Every structure is written in C-alpha cells, then in structure tokens.
Simulated scan of single mutants.
Amino acid sequence: MNGARLPDPADLLTPEAFRLLDAIGRAGSFAGAARELGLVPSALTYRVRQIEDALDVLLFDRSSRQARATPAGVELLAQGARLKQDVDAVVRRVQRVATGWEPSLTIAVDGVIAPAALMELCQDFFALDPPTRLRLRDEVLSGTLAALTSGQADLALGVMLEPANAANLRARPLGHVRFVYAIAPTHPLASVPEPLSDSVLLQHRAVVVADSAPGSATLSFGLLAGQATLTVASLQAKLAAHLRGLGVGFLPEPLARPWLAGGQLVERRLERSTRTATLHYAWPARTQPGQALSWWLERLERPITRRALLQAPANV
C-alpha cells in the first residue's frame, strides 16, 4: 500500500459505468462487450477493475473465456437496471412538470366524503400517469377549510363553512347532506316519546367529532351547551360509538342509511328542526390552476361526481 486513497465507489458507479457492466453481462465476454461499445478490450477491463477495486468485490468470473457475473455482479447489474428506471422516471416527471403539471397536489377531505368515490377519482387521475404526487388529508368540520386557507392544501372537499367568507378562495357547491338523529335501539332515548326536547337530550351523552382545525375557532354540530360528551377523531369512530350505544347525536344520513335499514340504528324526531348541511369544494383563487388541479376541478363540475362523493362511506 502506498497510502493512496481508493476512489469513492459512488464516483465510479456512473450511468456510463452501468452501461459498460450491462454490455458485459449481455455479451458474456469482455471482448464481445468491447466490440459492441467500440472500445479497446484493455480499456474496458481497466474500467471494470477500477470499479471492483473501489467496491472490494469481484463482479465477473474470468476463469474461462466467458465472463460470468458473480452473485455480487448480478446484484449490481440488477440495481443498475433499477436506477436507470428511476432516472428515466425522473426525466419524464421533470418534462411533464415543465408542461404545467404541479409537482404535488394536496387535497383536504372532510369525513363526510365517501371514500370509495374518492378512491375511484384517484384511480382515474393516476391512469393519466401524471408527474404529480397526490396527498390526501383527513379533516373534520372547519379543519377542512383551515387546511386550505393555511396553505396546507390545494383543494378542499366537503367544506361546511361558507368559503366565500375566506379571502383569496374560489368555491362551488358540492351538494346537500341531511343529518339524522340516530341512536342504538338499546339506548334509553329509543323508547322516549317523540319529538325529543332539548331538556331530554341534555340528560344523555353526545358523541362529538373533534374539529381538526387548530386553535380555538372550531365548529361543533348539534351539540347542546352543557351536554356530556364523548369526543372521537372521525365520523367512522362516531358511527361505531352510536352503534354501541355509547352516546347520541347527529350522523350524515348517507353514512347512517344502511344501519337504519338494518335496524342497528333508529332515527328519532327532535323538537328542533331537521339539520341539512350545504357542502362546498374550494381552492385558492390562482390566476391559472395547474394541470392536476384543473383535472380535479373538471371532474367536480360533473353532477355524477358530486353525487357520488356524498354517498354512504364504507361501513364500520
């Protein structure tokens, strides 16, 4: 050893180096690979030995006239092919981003949105082979709009608050959802004469979904002042609590529908008026949305898409 520092393997494992190694693997000999690449065999051998010395492994068995890849060589060739695919994918992504596709798109999704319909939209979107990375954020109540106004989302689905009150946003109606007062048939309120008054409701625990908006400016739905509560993180958890008789409260009718039909929940009439929420989808008021956001907005303009998004979510 003369003290000279060996080259860093990362400096030698260039795309060109992988091309040389791949040619040897396909040709089965250094001579054949050299002819294919238009190189002098000694130059090709020298390059391969440089890589082997840097890795401290033998990549090709040269004990015969053939050049057979060793297990280490097979692994390196496989990784080289994978790296080439990754580089090609990056090239395609960059080229498509240059045509107006966003690098990423984040969608804030309220719990009232039907997951199956949303996943079908995602499937259609990915069928385009877009360069855009898609991220879905689960939000509840005012948190859906807050994700948009804080810059954490590019599109919000199921906004319950009036988006027109927020600056620099555009919004369209998504549809209406009726909320039903649904409880387990074993709950004490199931046998109380209708309509149920607020004074009667106050005697029983309400199941409440926690608003996902940060800070104190949050929204509750159908909760009476002073009522005991069980707070959960999602509508699915709220439904599960209702089914087990852990509390009472309002549920979106599409979510409760199969359970009402099957008798696992019963709807009760209240003295207060029936609750119906108008939902919106909203996005920043940019001059020109990118290709990804434009695709989602175009699909949301279709009545069939809006109806599907407000149908019953998956069962608990």
Score class of each variant (00 low, 15 high):
R68W: 10
P214I: 07
R275W: 05
L105N: 02
A72M: 10
T99H: 08
A10L: 09
A190E: 02
T144I: 08
L44Y: 14
P71E: 00
A256N: 09
L169C: 08
A31G: 15
V316Y: 00
D129N: 10
P254W: 03
V48E: 01
E301P: 04
G290R: 02
D110Y: 04
A228W: 01
A182R: 11
T278K: 13
A167L: 13
R178N: 08
P254G: 09
L265I: 07
R307D: 12
A34R: 10
F30K: 13
Q95W: 03
R178S: 09
P115N: 10
Y181I: 05
A153W: 01
N2E: 12
L310I: 07
R19Q: 15
I24Q: 13
S234E: 05
W259A: 14
R19L: 09
G28M: 10
D56R: 11
G290H: 04
L239P: 00
E52V: 05
W101E: 04
S197A: 12
V316H: 10
R302M: 10
Q79M: 08
L279I: 04
A147L: 14
H242C: 11
I113Y: 00
E120A: 15
F126D: 04
A147C: 14
A285W: 02
L20I: 13
Q291C: 04
T14E: 00
V112Y: 02
Y281D: 05
R47E: 12
S294N: 07
H176M: 10
G3T: 06
I304G: 14
D56I: 06
W283V: 01
L310V: 08
Q50R: 15
L121D: 05
